[in-house]
Design a protein around this nucleic acid. Structure first.
Lengths: 222, 222
DNA sequence: GGGACTTTCAAACAATTGTTTCCAATGACG
DNA sequence: CGTCATTGGAAACAATTGTTTGAAAGTCCC
């Protein structure tokens, strides 16, 4: 037989694509195993359960990502020895780290779609797993963002970061559908890199937006 | 018994909550009917199928929304007779329309979560249904936005609108989880209205962000 | 009050799900 | 060569899914 990837890899490769296309609950193990041309029992044999398979799919992206991102942040901190790292550079570094990992397998779309699913699908175990396993690097990043934007109240920065997270995940995870519309309406084919290029000024402007007017006193009219 | 809502309403009320909490595929008809205290067959009897039930849940929000939104846009156009409506007012009007509908049932969170699911879950039939049934009002809105932002290339405006759509849907549909974190870290309880207040300057700044640097020539610069 | 409906109900349906079982094939090692 | 643990595979498992059935109960109008 040809040098076919081993069973575990074939399962992961197939599972991530199907999960990204249809979600977790809508993808049965039989869908995966038949398309991957492995035996049905192989999933439970190698991974233990469907939940564990889902986590393994994420780990294959997030493990290298956290390594790279930590390294990139190390480098950035060294460059600005002790000083504050500008917001643009932080965002740039994150974008680069996110893009690098799946680039090897031409699967950024899949990666983003999976991230979107992790947020939107029920799968409580997944959110818990990701938070426990990969929360650290995100904490480090937000701390650096805090130093870069001292004028922002903590709560405001927290929300704006999540606003932007929403922008990126929503856009890139719904990319196929949006791309179809865009292509039809504007005849323009958009690559992921095009989108990142478009995202940059928007995200920076959003983070630097003026502060909202203070909340009106709870009961009393403003 | 007391003046309990009729079967159809009880099913819809229960279904929307469960769908919002767990997604469509993860919510079985038995979950719904048992919690709603109606017979299992009632769903298929009144709605025909689970798909039709899902669509009915959306219709109950989107029908009144489109009516209100169209009316609000009519009013806005009348105020600016023939002239251009400023972007801020357009966004403001949309926000107000979105907030008004579920306010009657205190269920904005559910509404937003459902919108998020409509984008992220497989459910191709849902996207098609929403597009066909409610695409018109969105088209009208984007056309007004086009007039308000003549300096933006069409494609750029298209993407920025979707960026902001992502921000709003992602934030408000993941509100519970985010709220927990925010409350724990900043001791601050956020209401939906707080969030809208915070969103306003961010969205405006994002739409008015400087244009991205032109794409590096792909084959031939346009 | 009786006939024509609509609505409710318990039960069963066929299909699909994740998981487990048991046996054959494989390969390493003494 | 023979032994034994490991891995692969077809089939069966129990549980759950959406849907349908057919009869009972309720409702309305003439």
């Amino acid at each position: 037989m040809a040098q076919q990837p081993d069973t575990v890899t074939r399962i992961l490769d197939t599972a991530e694509v199907l999960f990204a296309e249809r979600g977790f609950a809508e993808t049965s193990l039989r869908n995966i195993t038949s398309k991957a041309k492995v035996n049905l029992a192989a999933v439970n044999y190698h991974f233990g359960s469907k939940k564990a398979l889902i986590q393994a799919v994420f780990a294959r992206y997030l493990d290298p990502f956290t390594v790279r991102f930590h390294a990139a942040l190390d480098e950035l901190e060294a460059d600005h020895a002790g000083g504050v790292i500008p917001l643009e550079e932080l965002l740039e570094t994150m974008a680069r780290s996110v893009l690098e990992v799946p680039a090897e397998r031409n699967s950024l779309k899949v990666f983003m779609r999976l991230l979107g699913l992790a947020y939107s699908q029920a799968q409580g175990h997944l959110r818990r797993y990701i938070q426990e396993e990969y929360g650290g690097v995100f904490t480090r990043f937000t701390e650096l963002v805090r130093l870069a934007t001292p004028e922002l109240p903590d709560a405001e920065r927290f929300w704006r970061l999540h606003f932007m997270l929403g922008t990126v995940i929503f856009t890139l995870s719904g990319l196929d559908a949006l791309r179809d519309i865009a292509e039809k309406d504007y005849g323009e084919h958009v690559s992921v890199r095009d989108l990142v290029r478009r995202l940059r000024p928007v995200v920076v402007a959003a983070m630097n937006a003026p502060l909202p007017e203070p909340a009106p006193a709870q009961r009393q009219a403003g």
